[in-house]
Computed example of a mutant assay.
Amino acid sequence: MVSGGESYEGLRDGSAPGYFDDPTRLGYLPHGGFGFLRSALIDTHTGAYGREGRAYRLAADTGHDRVYALEENTAIVVENPGTRHEHFIVLGPNGVAVLDLRHARTGKTKNGWTLRGARYNYLTDHDRYDAHTWQTRPSADKHRLLPTGTAPVPVNTDVFYRRHHEEHGVASHDDTIRDEFDALYSPGEPRCSAGPLCQRLPRSTSNTPSKAATCRRAGPDRERPVGRCSSAPT
């Protein structure tokens, strides 16, 4: 169970067991919490504080292959935990990221720690997830967005910058996570439900290392972003 830490320092320095006075140091409790849910690590406030990086590092350091990363005011309701029929539904105004490290490989270069082959799915209100099959199922009132162009998204080098997440509905998706990131989103682009930033990217709701997936609620009066998109490394 995570006890504190920030993504940059966690990716750079790794994790250690215990609580620490330094709030940036990535710490964890080896024995976990109550043990009600064992299919994944849990992290919270993930999108608002850019905690995807620390979650990937902690999972890799402790030998876990999955993380459920919850955002504010959002919950998962888990049925049949610990069985072959374990699944959950997302409830709330934001979302839950499922970080998949089944095929991830760690390494070290002159630039620092690296992680390759990790994957990312983002679920929102009433999406469902099967923990045994690792499959997501979008809610019935969501539909795919179609690309309207192929122009690249401008580069922003700080993938953990909170303001971009809040203002542009951006989350990252790729098969390579590094100590240094090239985040492909821009403060000059509109929100996901409003235009080119999302609509010009290929869409998919599957767990693949291709371009990111997003959904939005059907209907012209309900176009708030319920999914997020970019092709940036996490």
Rank of each mutant, 00 (worst) to 15 (best):
D21T: 08
D22Q: 08
P23C: 15
T24Q: 06
R25W: 01
R25V: 08
L26A: 03
L26W: 05
L26S: 00
L26V: 02
G27H: 06
G27R: 02
Y28G: 07
Y28F: 15
Y28K: 10
L29I: 07
L29T: 05
L29K: 04
P30Y: 08
P30C: 05
P30V: 06
P30T: 03
H31G: 11
G32R: 02
G32Q: 02
G33A: 08
F34D: 15
F34W: 09
G35I: 06
F36R: 10
F36M: 12
F36H: 12
L37P: 00
L37Y: 12
L37R: 03
R38H: 02
S39G: 12
A40P: 01
L41E: 09
L41R: 07
I42N: 00
I42S: 10
I42F: 06
D43V: 06
D43T: 08
H45E: 04
T46E: 06
A48G: 02
A48H: 04
Y49P: 00
Y49G: 12
G50I: 00
G50F: 03
R51G: 11
R51P: 09
R51N: 06
E52F: 01
R54S: 00
R54K: 13
R54F: 04
R54E: 10
A55I: 04
A55Y: 03
A55V: 12
Y56H: 10
Y56D: 00
R57C: 01
R57G: 03
L58M: 15
L58A: 05
L58W: 05
L58R: 13
L58C: 13
A59V: 09
A60P: 01
D61R: 02
D61T: 04
D61A: 01
D61F: 13
T62K: 04
T62Y: 00
T62R: 00
T62F: 05
T62D: 05
T62N: 01
V67D: 02
V67H: 06
Y68S: 05
A69C: 15
A69K: 14
A69G: 10
A69D: 14
L70W: 04
L70C: 01
N73K: 10
T74W: 02
T74M: 09
T74S: 10
T74R: 13
A75K: 04
I76A: 12
I76Q: 00
I76V: 13
V77D: 13
V77T: 14
V77L: 05
V78F: 14
E79L: 09
E79I: 02
N80K: 06
N80S: 14
P81W: 11
P81N: 07
P81I: 07
P81L: 11
G82D: 11
G82Y: 09
T83N: 14
H85C: 07
H85E: 09
H85V: 09
H85T: 10
H85N: 08
E86R: 11
E86W: 08
H87N: 15
F88M: 15
I89T: 15
L91K: 15
L91P: 10
G92W: 09
G92I: 12
P93E: 09
P93F: 09
N94S: 07
N94L: 14
N94V: 14
N94T: 11
N94K: 15
V96I: 10
V96R: 06
V96S: 02
V96Y: 06
A97F: 15
V98F: 00
L99Q: 04
D100K: 03
D100V: 01
D100F: 00
D100R: 13
